[in-house]
């Protein structure tokens, strides 16, 4: 497999893992909102907390993690050039 193909394969897998985590925090938790809300965090009902802060914070961390890991994948394949001369 060429360098380009293996880079794209890793990029695709990374995208799918990221979207799976995203799906959990944006959809799955709220699918079971009623039972999740029985739990609590910092004294907040849990589903309320996730909707007000928890999932939002998870997305912020997720995107930073996504960007950093993608940069590593790019570097491994020699595509990590800082600036392009367009």
């Amino acid at each position: 497999m060429s360098n380009k193909d293996s880079h794209w394969m890793k990029t695709k897998n990374h995208m799918m893992v990221t979207l799976a985590i995203w799906f959990f925090f944006s959809i799955v938790i709220f699918m079971f909102g009623e039972s999740v809300n029985q739990g609590s965090f910092l004294g907040y009902p849990l589903a309320y907390y996730m909707s007000a802060q928890g999932s939002l914070a998870a997305f912020v961390i997720l995107i930073f993690w996504f960007a950093n890991k993608q940069e590593k994948i790019d570097d491994e394949h020699g595509y990590g050039g800082e600036r392009e001369d367009d």
Partner: peptide, 10 residues
């Protein structure tokens, strides 16, 4: 809130 932040992952 969830929608307007989660969209940035996409």
């Amino acid at each position: 809130l969830v929608g307007w932040t989660g969209g940035y992952v996409l």
